[in-house]
Design a binder for these strands. Structure first.
Lengths: 147, 147
DNA sequence: CTTCCTGCAAAAGTTTTGCATTAAC
DNA sequence: GTTAATGCAAAACTTTTGCAGGAAG
């Protein structure tokens, strides 16, 4: 988990280099936008903030960043995908999802609780013949505006 | 939570009637297929089982059933939606999601653990100004075939 | 100078919708 | 008889891809 902007850029650049990819201007602005948001952003959000980036470039770059393990595609309720920085670059967290407007916010839960979840799920997965990689815990509810 | 087939049909019929909808043959077979599966089914799965039902009818009927609170749309990793009976008609459960092949299976977790999750999330949601409706806890991993 | 990135336009894939017809109540 | 459901085809929408030109190392 790195918090300074310079450190983040260096990490991203290194990971891209490992897979023979460059850290271009488009990619820098995508990363900056995702790092500044406290929630996963949809392509539409990104295109608004990053005026001048064609949709196809945004998709293609997010695809590259995803394969490099830098960005994660978040599937929620809506019709389109949202993107956030991978957990290796941020803190492990969960999402508050508004069932009415689709808004998604990040939220962290206590570490002890997190470990308790992991232990329980690990056992359940083993019983079911699954190799656990992680979990996804979202809160579904109504945000302030939609309550 | 009702388990007998007859009781399920009656419940579905009643709920549809409440919103001025009919319990037709297509809808009966959709419900039967969903009730028989131990996992959320994609449209493609349903169309295979229910030979002769046009895709548009399946989508339209699932939409009606969803609005009536009978069926729930499950968003996982893949590109298309999956459907399952609403929790009012089955038991509360979670999903094992294979990150490789997209397979999804139902899994239940201990009641005490479930309640502990609910308590913790309720508090977090309140702090964030969210009215909690429920939670979604999925295990992400690799299934037997993909391990 | 070779490899990767960009931008446009076109294609692909899933889901929704308009409309005339048929079935349910 | 009214109202809702069906089936077909067409549309809408998000996401992916082909390709020619441009930038980066």
């Amino acid at each position: 988990m790195r918090s300074e902007a310079g450190s983040l850029d260096r990490t991203v650049e290194d990971r891209l280099a490992e897979v023979g990819q460059r850290y271009t201007a488009h990619r820098r602005s995508l990363i900056a936008a995702l790092a500044a948001a406290k929630r996963p952003l949809a392509i539409a959000d990104l295109l608004t903030v990053l005026r001048g980036v064609p949709q196809s470039s945004a998709y293609r770059n997010l695809g590259v960043l995803e394969e490099a393990g830098i960005v994660r595609r978040v599937i929620t309720e809506g019709d389109y995908a949202r993107f956030e920085l991978d957990e290796g670059l941020t803190a492990h967290h969960h999402h508050l999802v508004c069932e009415n407007c689709g808004r998604v916010e990040d939220v962290e839960i206590p570490g002890t609780f997190e470990r308790s979840i992991d232990r329980t799920l690990e056992r359940l997965a083993r019983d079911a013949g699954f190799a656990t990689v992680g979990h996804r815990l979202d809160l579904i509810g109504r945000c302030r505006s939609c309550a």
